[in-house]
Amino acid sequence: MQLGLGLPISNPRLLTDWARRAESCGFDTLALLDRLAYHNPEPLVALSVLAGATSRIRLQTEVLLGPLRATALLAKQVATLDVMSGGRFTLGVGIGGREDDHAAAGVPITARGRLLEAQLTELRRIWRGKPYQGTTIGPRPDTPAGPPILIGAFAPAALRRVARHGDGFLCAAPLAWADKLVRTVHDEWTAAGRSGRPRLVCQMNVALGAAFAPARSAIAAYYGRDDWGVPIADPNELLDTVAAYRTFGADELVLYCYADDPNQVDTLAGVLGLI
């Protein structure tokens, strides 16, 4: 099972330090959240900077809110990042559920599923060099047919979208109730006639030592509630939880720490045995 690092969002100036440390410590992926009506960095712009600051580690959005963006421009941005990172980018995409994000983008929140469905089809066509609105849009991605797409989902219709358009499932649900979601995705995958199985990427929040209090405060501010996503603070519990996700069958587990201190990278890597 690969291990990724979810980057904090409150101080973009620190992210280059986080990225370089994560790569040197042996993490496999850097991941970044997406909101519009919030003070987080725009993920494609931020990950482009981090691509230039690193050479090996993969870059991933978790999840980019596709319907808030124009399809042609999104296709061009993603392809550019894929090319300039040497094919290290994975597009994690979803619809989001915040009224303020959709209002700021001028996108009806009730149309977000339909918009993403059409968008995913068009992104693949654009990346293959097919015309869009009568013209072709470059550059062509470094990865043939475009970078891998992970789809974050909870609702049945969204879980079916993984089988129709995705390469894998980004499961943000706690392990205690992730099993039903994953089984539904596998059933839909089989029903759609897809070979193999979808890649499974899971998430968890963690903040060790002095990082716990600022991380919990940042998570509460982000979600607007203080009882959601409380980070794991005990190293032994962290190791047990990572082992549980490995047994569960996750291909990758992304550890999110909302606290800013880059020393948290080294602390986590030490506990996990990466260094």
Rank of each mutant, 00 (worst) to 15 (best):
P41I: 11
A79P: 04
K76W: 09
N40A: 12
A72D: 13
A72H: 11
L44T: 03
L65R: 00
P43E: 06
R58P: 11
L36E: 02
R56I: 00
L33K: 01
G52A: 12
V49M: 13
R35F: 09
L64H: 05
A53W: 00
G66D: 04
L32A: 06
Q77F: 02
V78I: 14
V45G: 02
H39Y: 04
T61E: 04
H39E: 10
L44F: 06
V45R: 08
S55T: 15
A51E: 02
R35P: 05
R69T: 10
L74C: 12
V49I: 15
A51C: 01
R35Q: 14
T80M: 11
Q77W: 10
A70K: 12
D34E: 13
A72N: 09
L50A: 05
L33H: 11
N40P: 03
I57Y: 02
V45W: 03
S48P: 06
A46D: 01
L32R: 01
R69A: 07
A51I: 04
Q60I: 04
V78W: 04
A75P: 11
R35Y: 09
A37D: 14
K76Y: 08
P67R: 09
L32S: 06
E62D: 12
L59P: 03
L68G: 06
L68W: 04
L33N: 08
Q60R: 14
P43G: 13
A70G: 07
R35C: 07
E62P: 00
T54L: 01
A79K: 05
L74F: 12
I57N: 01
T61V: 07
I57G: 01
T61Y: 06
A51K: 06
Q60S: 09
P43F: 05
L47G: 08
R58W: 00
H39I: 05
G52D: 05
L65Q: 11
S55C: 09
Q60G: 02
G66A: 14
R58M: 05
L44M: 12
L65W: 01
P41W: 02
V45I: 15
T54P: 00
E42I: 08
